[in-house]
Amino acid sequence: MQPRDPEQDAAPPAHRKIIHIDMDAFYASVEQRDNPDLRGKPVAVGGSKERGVVAAASYEARKFGVRSAMPSVTAKRQCPDLIFVKPRFEVYKAISLQIRAIFAEHTPIIEPLSLDEAYLDVTENLQAIPLARDIALAIRAKIKAETGLNASAGISYNKFLAKLASDHRKPNGQFVISPGMGPAFVEALPVGKFHGIGPATSTRMNALGIFTGLDMRNQTLEFMNANFGKSGVYYYWISRGVDERPVRADRIRKSVGAETTFSTDLIEFDAMIAELRPLIDKVWRHCEATGNRGRTVTLKIKFADFEIMTRSRSVPSPVASRDELESMISSLLECEMPLPKRVRLLGASLSSLQSENDSEPQLDFGL
């Protein structure tokens, strides 16, 4: 007897078919593809031995705990044989366009999240392939044939579950979460594995006795709203496997930012600049990866007593380089020195984003 396909179990026409495609260790895989000497070795793209942060890590490096956004010094400590490679964003962007063209053979409804991942709505697809699973297989096979790179895929009836599914069989695999599987799949999941729930929110949920999707589902909407504000509604519904967000084609992000909280409060200018540099690296990596640039730079300062201060500066044309971004952030901080209180958190962001090929800002995206 043939086993039933999960998509055939309980998929009435009303259910959407969403695919989340995620390239496996994209930047590092490109470098290993193009340089045979790097294959099978732990590779970190970005950073350096002395400073900076890791933009991407190969799977060989990940075995040692190396991950993106990790300080280079920490990465090298955890993996002494780690090889640092300078990023080549123009190459990554060109490959991303190749991959995007493959997506477009199946659907015009493509929502890129970055150079290496995207959502596709294939409820009605251009090749009339009945199963989204088979569309994902075809896309992954063509990506491999044309670029030599591996991609993973998640298939489900909404974006939240599709992204969870793509993580479930990485690297170089795919997984289907059908409508019948969705709620049960979510209830066993630790809250820290939920896309959109970071370490701070996860810790806060744990303190409230919420450790799994089932724990979250057992809370009332009022409780979630009271403790998590606007995000409470989103958490309430995704714990039930419900996510009504559409796949939105051609979205442009409005802003990108990064922030960090210190274990020890800071007061000295040089110490704060040192902490801001990895944040600036992270913001600029996003700009390089997406080809977007921004005109408004914002510095966020949270003091030891939790008072928050922000300072912004807008310029007529988009910020053109990482050094220019650092210069503007440094200037904003310097204008406030000496600060009246010790600092527990700093953040840097760039907004009014637009494509570097456009003269006018475009609308709507998100990090």
Rank of each mutant, 00 (worst) to 15 (best):
E7Q: 05
D9P: 02
A10T: 02
R16C: 02
I18L: 10
I19F: 13
D22L: 03
E31K: 02
R33T: 11
D34L: 00
D37H: 10
K41P: 01
G46F: 14
R51Y: 15
R51Q: 06
V54G: 14
A56D: 12
S58H: 08
F64G: 04
F64S: 06
G65N: 00
V66Y: 07
S68N: 02
M70A: 12
P71E: 04
L82W: 06
L82M: 11
F84G: 00
F84P: 10
V85D: 04
K86S: 13
P87R: 04
A94C: 08
I95C: 07
S96K: 04
L97Y: 09
L97W: 12
A101G: 14
A101S: 13
E105Y: 12
I109H: 14
I110H: 09
S114V: 08
L115V: 12
A118E: 04
A118S: 15
Y119P: 13
L126A: 14
L126N: 15
Q127K: 15
I129T: 15
I129C: 04
D134F: 09
K142A: 10
I143D: 11
T147Q: 06
G148P: 07
S152G: 05
A153N: 07
Y157F: 12
K159I: 04
A162V: 00
L164W: 01
D167F: 06
K170D: 08
N172K: 03
V176Y: 08
I177A: 03
I177S: 00
I177M: 02
M181W: 10
V186T: 02
V186H: 05
V191W: 02
I197D: 03
P199T: 10
S202R: 00
N206F: 07
I210T: 07
F211H: 15
F211G: 03
T212C: 02
T212A: 06
G213P: 10
D215P: 01
N218H: 10
E222S: 12
A226I: 07
F228L: 05
S231C: 09
S231R: 14
G241H: 07
D250K: 08
G257N: 11
T260Q: 03
I267P: 08
E268Q: 10
F269G: 01
F269T: 02
D270K: 11
L279T: 03
I280S: 09
W284A: 06
G291Q: 05
G291V: 04
V297R: 00
V297K: 05
I301Y: 12
M309H: 14
R311Q: 04
S314P: 08
V319E: 02
A320Y: 06
E326W: 15
S330A: 12
M337I: 06
L339E: 05
V343F: 01
V343R: 04
S349P: 09
S351N: 00
S352K: 07
